[in-house]
């Protein structure tokens, strides 16, 4: 039965269209990543370097938008109303953390929260939308949309397979997600921005470069140092927030009930 009695069920053509869009987005993302890692183009400012930067930027952004178009029409109203709250939380908590000298980002808190409550599709959509809206204030984040989508997707996947049934599992899932997100996002930092994503991270990249690493290798190692810790903390805090929600509220999300995300006690 349709989740909304006033709306018609999606037709087979619409479903096929969404699957094609999703598959195209995933293929584009994976293909671009593999191409960059295998070929490791040299010369990031001269010759074809600017072409690689342009192609990487476009491919990552287009892949994220295709994934967004594939999942957006499928989302239930409960997820759609939660997404703007999550986007605002990403910005507010990100700013609050950024205002003090604590080496954390916490700017994907809302994305992870949606992934935990509404599933991986909603999480991925939140990641992409968060980046697109944030780009109105900081355009350099645009090509990182695919990485942000991956954070939401992995949060939803972790919740689906039981990461919230024990409190200690959430940071472990965050740690693993951080590794994957760091690996996927590093070609953007390396080939589009020449390895930079901030002064602090730039110093780490510079240290690896001075030890003789290639740019992609140095950026990937820096990402593997920064991202897993940040994501472990974000996943833990988001999990604690979900535990703090009244069961009446968390149980209103179909994803939580269907996959018994909070274990048996959380679904009453």
């Amino acid at each position: 039965m349709s989740p909304n009695l006033l709306l018609p069920e999606a037709s087979a053509t619409q479903l096929l269209r969404r699957r094609v869009l999703g598959a195209a987005g995933t293929l584009l993302l994976v293909g671009t990543y593999l191409f960059l890692v295998i070929t490791q183009p040299a010369g990031i400012v001269e010759g074809l370097g600017q072409g690689v930067a342009l192609a990487t930027f476009a491919a990552y952004l287009i892949a994220a938008v295709l994934l967004l178009l594939a999942v957006l029409p499928d989302l239930p109203v409960s997820a759609l109303t939660l997404i703007p709250v999550a986007l605002a939380l990403n910005i507010i908590l990100g700013q609050f953390v950024g205002s003090v000298m604590v080496p954390l980002y916490l700017d994907s808190m809302g994305t992870v929260l949606v992934g935990f409550l509404a599933g991986r599709r909603a999480g991925a959509a939140t990641g992409v939308l968060s980046t697109l809206i944030w780009a109105l204030f900081a355009p350099t984040v645009l090509p990182f949309a695919a990485g942000a989508a991956l954070v939401g997707f992995l949060a939803g996947t972790a919740a689906r397979y039981g990461a919230l049934r024990r409190p200690y599992l959430a940071p472990i899932a965050g740690l693993v997600s951080g590794v994957l997100v760091g690996v996927v996002s590093s070609p953007v930092a390396a080939f589009v921005y020449g390895g930079t994503s901030g002064v602090g991270t730039g110093a780490v990249v510079a240290a690896f470069r001075s030890m003789g690493d290639s740019l992609l290798s140095a950026v990937t190692k820096q990402a593997l140092i920064s991202d897993p810790g940040d994501k472990a903390i974000v996943f833990l805090i988001a999990a604690l927030l979900v535990f703090a929600l009244p069961k009446r509220l968390s149980g209103s999300f179909e994803f939580i009930r269907r996959y018994k995300v909070l274990g048996k006690s959380g679904n009453k």
Partner: peptide
């Protein structure tokens, strides 16, 4: 700061979703 903000915002979003669904959104 975060716990009351998140809890009240998720509650508001839930209330909004019921009204939007009833209006055929």
């Amino acid at each position: 700061r975060a716990v009351p903000l998140v809890l009240s915002s998720v509650q508001d979003a839930h209330d909004r979703s019921v009204h939007l669904a009833a209006r055929g959104f």
